[in-house]
C-alpha cells in the first residue's frame, strides 16, 4: 500500500523544485550584496526538498483519515466558505453569514432546525456585536437595497 507520507513527500519535492526554479528567475538588482535575492529562497527550497525525500524514504505510520462522509462534509464546508468570501462584499453581512453559519452548523451536528436557528442567531448577534459594540463598518444588506 502507498503511504500518505510517500505521496506527500513527492508533492513536497515537486513543489520545492518548482520553488527553487522560480527563485532562480528572480532578477538581480543593481543594488547587489554578496548574498543577493536568490540565495536564501533557494536554500529553503533545497532543505524542503530534502525533508520531502526523507518522508518518501522513511514514511510514518498511516494517519487516521476520516471516512468518506466526513470528507464530503469538509468539502461542502470549503465550498461554502469560498462562496462566503466572494459574497461578503456584494451581499452585505447578514444574509451570507446566516447561510454560511447555518450550513457549517449543520455539518457539525445534523439538526436542520437547530442549524437554521444558530445561523440566524449568529448572524444577527455578531452583526450587533461588531457594528454597535466594536464599531466596525459592516454593511448589513446589499447596497442596492438601501440605495
Amino acid at each position: 500500500m502507498i503511504r500518505s507520507d510517500r505521496i506527500f513527500g513527492l508533492v513536497v519535492i515537486v513543489v520545492a523544485l518548482g520553488y527553487i526554479l522560480s527563485a532562480m528567475q528572480i532578477q538581480a538588482s543593481f543594488l547587489s550584496d554578496p548574498v543577493g535575492s536568490k540565495t536564501f529562497p533557494i536554500l529553503i527550497g533545497a532543505v524542503a526538498a530534502l525533508c520531502g525525500l526523507v518522508m518518501v524514504l522513511r514514511p510514518d505510520p498511516e494517519p487516521d483519515w476520516p471516512g468518506i462522509g466526513s470528507f464530503i462534509a469538509i468539502g461542502i464546508s470549503v465550498v461554502v466558505l469560498v462562496a462566503y468570501a466572494y459574497s461578503l462584499k456584494p451581499m452585505g453581512f447578514l444574509i451570507p453569514t446566516a447561510i454560511a453559519a447555518g450550513i457549517l452548523s449543520y455539518q457539525i451536528s445534523p439538526r436542520p432546525v437547530f442549524a437554521a436557528l444558530s445561523g440566524i442567531g449568529l448572524s444577527v448577534g455578531l452583526f450587533l456585536l461588531f457594528k454597535y459594540a466594536l464599531d466596525l463598518g459592516l454593511v448589513p444588506f446589499p447596497k442596492s437595497w438601501t440605495a
Binding site: L81, Y84, A85, T97, A100, S105, F114, S118
Partner: peptide, 28 residues
C-alpha cells in the same frame, strides 16, 4: 454546543480579516 461555537469562530475570523483588508483574496 460546538454546532454554534465553531461556526461562530469561523465567522469572527472572516469578519476580522475582511475588516482589515477588505479583500476577498485574503479570505480565500
Amino acid at each position: 454546543p460546538p454546532a454554534v461555537l465553531l461556526p461562530g469562530v469561523c465567522m469572527v475570523s472572516f469578519v476580522g480579516i475582511f475588516s482589515l483588508s477588505g479583500s476577498y483574496f485574503d479570505l480565500l
